[in-house]
Amino acid sequence: MKKKQRLILQIMLAVLMIGILVSFSVGQYPVPPDAVVGILAKKAGLPIESFWTGAMETAVWNIRLPRVILSIMVGMSLAAAGGAYQGVFQNPMASPDILGASAGAGFGAALAILLGASSAGIMTGAFGFGMVTVGLVFLVSHRAKGDRILGLVLSGIMISTLFQSGTSFLKLVADPGNQLPQITYWLMGSLSGARWADVGFAVVPMILGWIPLLLLRWQLNVITVGDDEAKTLGIHPQRLRLLIVVFSTLITASAVAVSGIIGWVGLVIPHITRRLVGNDYRYLMPASMMGGGIFLLLVDNLSRSLTASGIPIGILTAFIGAPFFLWMITGKGARDEH
C-alpha cells in the first residue's frame, strides 16, 4: 500500500518537472529547449555564453517563468484548500470557496477596479476582502444554533450570496467602456498577465498556509470520523477546523488575488487524487498539491497555445476537467476503491 503511494507521489513529481520544462517551449513565441536550459542556468549564476537572442531571454525569464510558477502555486493552493475543507467539513462536496473566500475576493477586486486601483491595489483588495469575508462568516456562524458545521456552511453560502450580489451591483454601475470588461475578465480567472510581482505577492502567504496544512494532515484523517468520536481520540475538532479555515483562506485568497476566480480545481483535483493514492491525508495532501499544480500548468499551456490572446484559464479548467472527471467515475478510469 504505502510503497504504491510513494511511487505515485514520485511519478507525480516527475510529471510536474517534465511539465515545467515543456511549458517553456509552448506558446506563440517558440524557444528551443537548450536555450531554455541555458537561460535558466545563466540566471542561476552559471557562467554560460549566450547562444540565444535577447527576446528569448525576455520571453523565458520575464513572461513564461513567472507564469509557470504562478500556475503551479495557484493549482497547489486551490487543491490543498479543497482537500483540507473536505476533511474538516466532513463533506466530499466542500470546495475552497464554500466559506466565501472567492466571492469576497471577487467583490474586493471589482471594487478596486471601480475605484481605478493599480494591479497591486486590485490584488490587495481581492486578498483583503477574501480574508474579511471568511472572518465574517466565522463570526456569524458562532451565533448560529444547532449543528456547528451546518451553521458554518450555511453562513458561508449566505454571505457568499451577499458578496456576489454586491459584485453584480458593482458591474451594473461600472463604466461599460473599460471597467466592466476588466471586472468580467478578472472574474473569469486568468494567468495571462502573470509577472514576477504576482509571484512575489502570493508566495509568502501561500507558503505560510501550505506548511500547516501539510503538518496537520494526520489530524485531517481523524476529524472525518465526526467531531465527537474524533475528540475521544484526542484531538480538538473545533480548534482544528478553525486552523484549517484560517490557513486555507490565506492560500485561497492569495490564489484568487493573483489569478481571479478559477473554479473547479479545488473541488475535483482532490477527488481525482483520492482515486490515485486513497483517502489517507498523509499521502493525499502532498498528492493533491502536486496534482493541482500539474493540472493548472497543463491547462495554462493549452490556454496559451490555442489562441494568441489565450482563453481565460477559469473557462478551460472546467471544459477539460469535467469530462475527464466524468470519464474517471464512469468509464475505463473507474475502479473500485480498495
Binding site: 466530499p92 484523517n221 481523524v222 465526526g226 481520540l233 484526542g234 483517502n279 489517507d280 480498495h338
Partner: peptide
C-alpha cells in the same frame, strides 16, 4: 458504529487510536 466521511483501510482506522 463509525462512519468516516471517506473510506479508510482497517489499519488506518486502528492507527487513529494512536493519535494521542
Amino acid at each position: 458504529n463509525s462512519t468516516p466521511t471517506f473510506h479508510y483501510s482497517v489499519l488506518d482506522i486502528v492507527l487513529m487510536g494512536r493519535t494521542n
